[in-house]
Structure formats: C-alpha cells, structure tokens
Nucleic acid binder design. Structure first.
Lengths: 128, 128, 128, 128
DNA sequence: GTGGTCTAGACCACG
DNA sequence: GTGGTCTAGACCACA
C-alpha cells in the first residue's frame, strides 16, 4: 500500500488518505476487485486511528470507488464511470490549477520547470 | 478587483483571497507599485470582515508580494523571486498536481480535456 | 420460495430473510402446516451461510410463526395472533411509518404517489 | 426542537436524529432559512455526544436539506427538490412499506387499525 | 475478525 | 463560539 501521510500538514489526515488512494485508483494501481486492507490494519501501518481510515474508505465508497461490506472489508468496485462531469467542474479545475501554479511560482519554483511538469503529466494522461 | 469569494466553500475565506490575488500577481495583472484597495473597501466589496482581508494582505506580505505601511495601505513591491525554490517544493507540487487531477478525473472530467488544460497552461507560462 | 436478498445492503441478511418470510406469512402465501425448506437448502438458494437462515427461522419461531423440530425442519403453525398488541406498538408504528414516508419524499418521490401506495395497501389489508 | 431519541434502540442514534429531523423538514415544521441549534447544544439536550449530532447534520447536508457553514452553524436550505426520484425508489418503498406492515401485524396490531393509519397519513400527504 | 457506533475530550481553524 | 478533526478505546452486530 504505497501511501504516505504527513501528520503535520494542515490538510486533514483522512483527506490525505482519500487523495492518495484516489491517485492509485485513477492510475490503475488499484483495480476492480482488489481488496483493501482492513481499516485497523491500514491505520496501524499509517500510525493513525482506525476511525480516520474508516472515514476515508467511506468517502471513497460514496464517490463510487469502493464497495464496503460489513464483514468483508473494502473492495475496489468495477467503477461505473461517472459518465457526466459536473458542468461546474471544468471552471473549478481551471481555477484550482491556476491557484496551485501561482502558489508554487510564489515559492520560487521557476516557470519553465512548472511548464515541464504540466506537459509531462498531460502526456501521461493521454498515453494511459 | 477581479476576485470572487465563495462563502460556502470549506476553503477558508482568507485563503481564497490570497489565492485569488496571487494569480493576479503572477499574471502581471497587478504590478510593482500598484496600490491595493484598503482592507475595509475590499472587505465591503467581498462581503467579508475586514480582518479577513487584512489577514490575507499580511500573508502576501510575508510571501514578499506586498508592502504594508501603517497609514498608506498595501502596495505591490518589485518582487525578487526567492532565488531558489524550497527543495521540497517540487515534490509537493507534483503530488498536489496529481491529487488535483485524480480528483477531477474522479468527477468524470475526461482525460483528454484535462491534458488540454495542462498543455494550455504550460504554454501560457512559457510565453509570458 | 419467493425471496430476494441484497448482500450489499446495510440491513442484516437475517433480517431481510425474516422480513421477507413474514410478508409471505401475513399474506397467506405460506399457510399453517406448510413445510419450510431446510436451512441448508434455502441458504444455498440465497447464497448465504446456513446459520444465517437458521437464525431467521429461530426469530420467526419466537414470534410464534414457526414450529421448529429437531429433525423435522420448520413448519408454519396455526398462529394465534397475540391477542393484544404491545401498547407501545401503535406509537412506534406511526413513527416508523412517518420516517419511511419522509425518507422517500426526501428522495423525490411525489406525495401523490406515496398517498396512492398507502391507500392501495390499506385496501388490500381490509379485503383479505 | 421536538425530537426524541431512544438510546436503547438498536437503530443508531445518529440515524434517529436524521429520521426525526427529516420528518420536521418534510412537514414544514422546519423551513428554509431556519437556524438549527449548534451541535453541542442539541447534543446536550438529547444527552448524546456532539459528534453524533454533527454526523446527523452532515448526513442531512449531503441530502441537500441543510447548509452547514463552519462558523455559522447549520441552516435549512431552500431545498432544491430532488427533481427526479430514483427509479428504484418506488419498488424499495413498496417493499419496505409491506415489511413494516407485516411486522406490526406480527405483533398483533389489527389490520383495521393499520389500514386506518395508512389512510390517515395518505390524507395528510394530499392536504398539505 | 470485519466494519459500525458512540463517548470523552483535546486541539484546531476560522472570523 | 462555531464546526471539524483526531485519538483512545469500549461495545455491538454480523457471519
């Protein structure tokens, strides 16, 4: 379970877990049918309370990624693609993307490098 | 002052203001020497408390974008970009970028469109 | 055995079985003297563990619907309806009924349709 | 806040709160714009932990009934009617309704009384 | 052994 | 003063 948590971050741990797992999911590193570790197990690995992990699993289940059964743990579901993107999503995405870029620019990260990262990610997206 | 705030968002208002202003700053829509609106004025425009705006200005001042003087309000300074980025910035940027992309993918936003947005932004960065 | 189980539901399987059988019982689709399928048989049909079915039978036996004998399986008994309802039952029924209706209203089910269902069921009850 | 909780019930307290509030909401006893009590306040009134109430509020917010703002508490939202009922809702409703009725019949509640309750509720629905 | 519920209570971010 | 997050840990229901 390739997953890193930063307990010091202001971003809530459960959100970090959700974000991290979602990356594995969209990248196909976690596939339909895969079993996730029991909440108490992953919690132990990450050094957090099991409730925190449980909350994360529940969030992903609501998003349609996981199927949680009381006694059988959480399993990646053959995800029905959300079919239709919220029309608002595009605008939000553009704004958040520009915010993120502005922030790292602000921290002195050079434009060229940022552009390179963006292009590289774009390629990855189209190849897979 | 092209700036929108969403009071319902879970993102703190002061952060939204900082993020919004920073975009204007890196895009050159706010330039060295420009005077920012008085906190009470901007607060009124946005419908928030003036302390919230003041907090935002202070944050940007700490980042080196603004110069705040007792009675003269806030002014954009000719900003020397921090010569070298925090070594941690690159990794963080990559991670946050991938998180953002995973999230919008999760919401059904098609990969091709995401890739296009990324490429377009990369171009803008290199041109300006 | 007209009975459907949803393993994904949060409602316990044994409860689903009890609820389903009880409907057959009050509707007279299962009558006094009828033999129920052996627990292992029904379990196989439903794709659940036989203990789960056994638990269901036991619950219905406690309610006075079934008679379970060591080697003869479960059989519907001529049921003397408990002469008087638990005084608390009426209040509980009203509350649960209203909860159920509020929930489906909440899901966008139109009042008219709900009312129709209620009336139809009321008729069925009085006719039989 | 007309709301009763049964701590002994097997139904989770937070569900009871959700169910209870939803009745007030569909009945118009809580209207758009109304402020709900702070989580800690209601929790104290009900004798439960504030987290339990918070969870309930969050659930109703997800259903679109409430609008929760970090510092301003929870407020009833001018609910956008869910427009389209899940096609599955009708079948589920019928089943659950029949399950409920079968259960109370099982407890000795006479058919005539049940029918009367159903009719009365149907009338209430159509009148309001 | 699995996830769910709930409590008690600390601490945080916000405005 | 508001809701949010997290922990520690008890207890429960289910299969």
């Amino acid at each position: 379970m390739k997953l890193r948590i930063d307990l010091k971050s202001t971003i809530p741990v459960y959100r970090q877990i959700v974000d991290g797992l979602r990356i594995l999911l969209v990248n196909g590193e976690l596939n339909a049918g895969d079993q996730l570790p029991p909440v108490r197990r992953l919690a132990l690995d990450l050094g957090v309370h099991f409730n925190t992990v449980a909350e994360s699993y529940r969030t992903l289940a609501e998003e349609g990624w996981l199927d949680i059964e009381r006694r059988n743990g959480a399993r990646v579901v053959p995800r029905a693609v959300p079919s239709r993107a919220d029309p608002q999503t595009e605008e939000t995405f553009q704004r958040r993307l520009r915010e993120l870029v502005a922030e790292v620019q602000s921290h002195g990260f050079p434009r060229g490098r940022i552009a390179r990262e963006l292009r590289q990610l774009a390629e990855n997206l189209e190849r897979s």
